[in-house]
């Protein structure tokens, strides 16, 4: 099955580059159905095409000035033909925590930097299309920081939204160390599926938690 992808980025050269590289790295896997360079175009293209995955730049012109976050807000409730929600994968050069956290909290399923290799990007797109989360080492680092893991805060019950469980913490630490999902699975003697479950659970906490650090980061972008 091919994944229908819309590419949203305000740099024409970057869009061309990503498209070419992805088509080379994973031929027949990705079907580029649309492109957009600003918030308004992006929303209309996504609403028209109902793609599986949107590759979304964090900083975009137009909208209310919040870039990718505006696109996600503008496409709430849009579903693909198969009935799954349109999923967003943030792709950015920005290292700023507030940018990363803001776009994740708006609903993106993952965050990767633009320096990612084409094969890694292809597998990230596959993962997001399957409804899983994609964490770069940097995002894992932000998560560990934001949830106070470095300071030793660990949830006693998994359901707690404001802290990570011990297992989630292990997974996040390994991802921060540069491990691929399958390496994480091997290291912790669990299946890749379980790793994906943990990462998705962390993503959910990241989106729903009212932890001060997270809201403060989002506040920095005036989103709340």
């Amino acid at each position: 099955m091919t994944v229908r992808v819309v590419l949203v980025d305000d740099h024409h050269m970057f869009r061309t580059g990503v498209r070419t590289e992805l088509l080379e790295a994973a031929p027949g896997f990705i079907d580029f159905v649309g492109e957009a360079a600003n918030v308004e175009d992006a929303v209309s293209v996504i609403r028209r095409e109902e793609p599986d995955v949107v590759l979304l730049d964090v900083h975009l012109p137009g909208g209310t000035g919040h870039g990718g976050v505006d696109v996600i807000h503008g496409c709430l409730g849009v579903e693909t033909a198969a009935g799954a929600p349109v999923r967003f994968l943030a792709l950015s050069v920005s290292d700023a925590a507030e940018d990363v956290i803001a776009v994740i909290r708006a609903g993106a399923r993952g965050y990767v930097t633009k320096t990612i290799s084409a094969t890694d990007l292809a597998s990230a797109i596959r993962r997001v299309a399957d409804g899983d989360a994609v964490f770069s080492p940097r995002l894992a680092g932000f998560v560990l920081d934001a949830f106070g893991v470095a300071a030793g805060e660990i949830a006693e019950v998994d359901e707690e939204l404001d802290r990570l469980s011990a297992r989630e913490r292990e997974v996040m630490r390994l991802i921060a160390r540069g491990y691929q999902y399958k390496e994480v699975a091997k290291e912790l003697f669990i299946s890749v599926k379980t790793v994906e479950t943990h990462v998705s659970s962390v993503l959910r906490k990241l989106q729903l938690s009212s932890r001060h650090e997270l809201t403060a980061w989002a506040m920095g972008r005036r989103l709340i």
Partner: peptide, 19 residues
């Protein structure tokens, strides 16, 4: 490459990983 470094400065110890 890719070479990655992760430094975790915890309450009791600093851990650094170079991969």
């Amino acid at each position: 490459p890719p070479v990655s470094a992760y430094v975790e400065i915890g309450p009791a110890a600093v851990e650094a990983f170079v991969r």
